[in-house]
């Protein structure tokens, strides 16, 4: 398409089409930056409700990712390495949160964890409640974001040459040792990417959380709450602050994981 210094008309068309999409993403963000004054951001930063909400959102998303990864990674390995009846159904179930409206996901979760439901009753017996609690925020975040980690981990396990695992077992390693010394280290880059995606998706969740746990207020809910109660001017600085903090967190995670796991 690009021969020497000459750019073909087709490439120009492709660039224009791509530029429109980029503009579509950048314009609202740029608009938000242009219409928000430094003083209103400083004000939002001094608002303890806002800072608590941001910390709650980041912490809950992190907790959802770490806690649920303990089950998602083994399931991803099973799906990558074994053939069994119902495998496609399991894959469909895992992908379900991506395709259903998140408010519907919230309703579905509510019907399981409310104190009238069996699971909710059992949890209440153990002193656990998911309605209007951090626990509720965590399960809502996990529910909608787990497919991102699951699919990334499964793809990573599938991409490992099986002969490496066979070689380890042939050398005397048990299945558990093979998993922890060969499969997991070789899949770690994909798993870490999946965890970052799960964290990101969980952090931005609104629909499911607003139904299970309006309070304690995570930042996406707070942005909506301030917008509904006080209008655009009140919600915009919080949205901008949240985007900036999320961006900084992502850059730190990416830099940390790249440095630590880039080569091996």
């Amino acid at each position: 398409m690009i021969q020497g210094n000459r750019i073909h008309i087709f490439s120009v068309f492709m660039m224009l089409a791509g530029a429109l999409v980029l503009l579509f993403v950048i314009a609202p963000l740029a608009g938000m930056f242009l219409h928000t004054s430094g003083s209103s951001i400083a004000e939002a930063l001094q608002d303890t409700e806002v800072t608590h909400s941001i910390l709650l959102t980041l912490g809950s998303a992190m907790a959802a990712t770490l806690i649920f990864s303990l089950g998602i990674i083994p399931l991803a390995w099973l799906m990558a390495r074994h053939t069994f009846r119902g495998k496609r159904i399991i894959q469909g179930i895992i992908d379900l949160p991506v395709v259903i409206p998140h408010s519907a996901a919230g309703i579905a979760l509510l019907s399981v964890v409310s104190e009238n439901a069996i699971f909710g009753k059992a949890a209440a017996g153990l002193g656990l409640s998911f309605i209007g609690t951090i626990g509720g925020v965590i399960i809502a975040m996990a529910f909608v974001s787990l497919p991102f980690l699951f699919n990334a981990a499964r793809d990573s396990f599938e991409s490992i040459d099986r002969r490496l695992e066979y070689a380890a077992m042939n050398l005397g390693a048990s299945p558990a040792k093979t998993f922890f010394t060969i499969s997991l280290p070789l899949a770690k880059n994909g798993i870490i990417s999946g965890m970052i995606m799960m964290f990101a998706r969980g952090m931005s969740e609104f629909g499911a959380i607003v139904i299970i746990a309006y309070y304690p207020m995570v930042t996406p809910v707070m942005i909506y709450d301030r917008f509904a109660s006080f209008g655009l001017e009140a919600s915009r600085p919080i949205a901008l602050l949240f985007i900036c903090i999320a961006l900084i967190v992502f850059i730190i995670i990416r830099l940390f994981t790249r440095r630590r796991y880039a080569t091996r």
């Binding site: 066979y166 070689a167 050398l171 299945p175 070789l186």
Partner: peptide, 28 residues
């Protein structure tokens, strides 16, 4: 597989790419 006491060298050799040669050899 891990109890057979037969050692196989695969056609593609299947060296563990994330382990140094020492760790590859000492694996068993």
């Amino acid at each position: 597989l891990n109890k057979r006491n037969v050692g196989i060298v695969f056609q593609n050799l299947a060296l563990f790419p994330h382990k140094k040669v020492f760790k590859n050899i000492s694996f068993s």
